[in-house]
Design a protein around this nucleic acid. Structure first.
Lengths: 213, 213
DNA sequence: ACGTGTGAACCGATTCACAGCA
DNA sequence: TGCTGTGAATCGGTTCACACGT
């Protein structure tokens, strides 16, 4: 039995898939299914059974040979692995259209992610309350990030200011950034950045569609 | 000299990077820089020089040995490769907060991507004009997608209806889907789907932040 | 017999290192 | 000399195939 060989072999994609499994296991549980095999669950997910098993094997043994996985148990265990059994507070910087959409996005709460602080530079917005949370001035970003010990933030600002915001965030203790601004952020090695670049995404999709005629 | 060995070795990521190069080359051009080496440009992009050169090599020879790349020329050539020298019409299905943000997203126009049709099922929205485009009923999706010969669509609907919408789109000739709904779409092999799953993205980011303490 | 867990084989993408040309 | 273009080497992630436990 191997346990917690963290940092060994698993990739970012393994973890992304774990979160995907988690969401789908919850669906499966709601349907009243109590035990499921790697074969059955992965048919819904565009993942191979062996990849599912391998992803889990990095963190322990959760199944029963000859039987499959107990759905409720596996949900618990994956939650422990990815950490979504505990609330996690994040910040959102830039409350334009996209920021507003992210603030209202229900998908985060499924993972116990709470947007705890929201920042914008527009004086018309500052001080107002949206989705039950007060919009703060970017000027108070450092102070509030530190005070709330926030470690993860979303950047949905215009591209021109994204690098500067990133630096302020990192300076205040943030270790992970989900970046929606279409720029490549320059950050130290110990900071995790995940980019969602919708323009590039769509453009490369169009490329493949053209290729295929 | 090798040319147009399309379908040979390049990956989805190669193409994504090409679109990234394109955007950054435009910035570089604006700064008045006329010639740039793979080494200089990739310093800004978290890409290695050899990867930059390899990505381009799949499509031709665009640089001068001992010199570098002519910025304006390279922009032209990459535009030809990814196809953003010609307007490309897409559809948007689901005009919630996220859909609204996408409709107003300026990043698409840089790649000459135009949202040509917008659909929603909310009767209060149908018939209204937003960002200069009329919101259509989902009931007329098939008809309008066919009529406008739209090949690429964005799904930003609630997860429950995403699969059904995808099927309608594919049925009407759509070959590529950018999916924001947090579900795994089941589609035929010849259809390209790119998923943007913000919940999973953020959750896996949190995982790595936790790991690192 | 059945499905997991996992080392080994495989495969594809990245990086290396150098030949080739300005 | 300097930097590109690219075959070869390397690296890492996925899949295979089977031993193992139930």
């Amino acid at each position: 039995m191997k346990k917690n060989n963290i940092g060994k072999n698993f990739s970012l994609d393994s973890i992304r898939r774990l979160t995907l499994y988690l969401r789908n296991l919850r669906k499966i549980k709601k349907q009243g299914i109590e035990v499921i095999s790697s074969d059955k669950i992965t048919r819904l997910l565009n993942v191979t059974p062996s990849q599912f098993r391998k992803d889990l094997s990095y963190f322990g043994e959760f199944g029963k040979r000859g039987v499959g996985y107990n759905v409720a148990f596996l949900i618990e265990e994956i939650q422990k692995i990815v950490g979504s059994h505990i609330d996690w507070n994040i910040a959102l910087v830039g409350l334009g259209k996209l920021g507003g959409a992210l603030l209202g996005f229900e998908g985060f709460s499924k993972f116990n992610i709470k947007i705890k602080a929201v920042f914008d530079s527009d004086k018309k917005k500052i001080g107002k309350i949206k989705n039950g949370i007060m919009i703060e001035a970017v000027d108070s970003l450092r102070e509030l990030i530190k005070k709330n010990k926030i470690k993860v933030a979303i950047i949905s600002t215009p591209p021109e200011v994204a690098q500067n915001i990133a630096e302020q965030l990192i300076d205040s203790g943030v270790k992970g950034i989900l970046n929606f601004a279409p720029v490549v952020l320059k950050v130290p090695d110990n900071i995790f950045v995940s980019n969602v670049d919708m323009g590039c995404e769509l453009e490369s999709l169009i490329f493949f569609v053209k290729q295929a005629n």
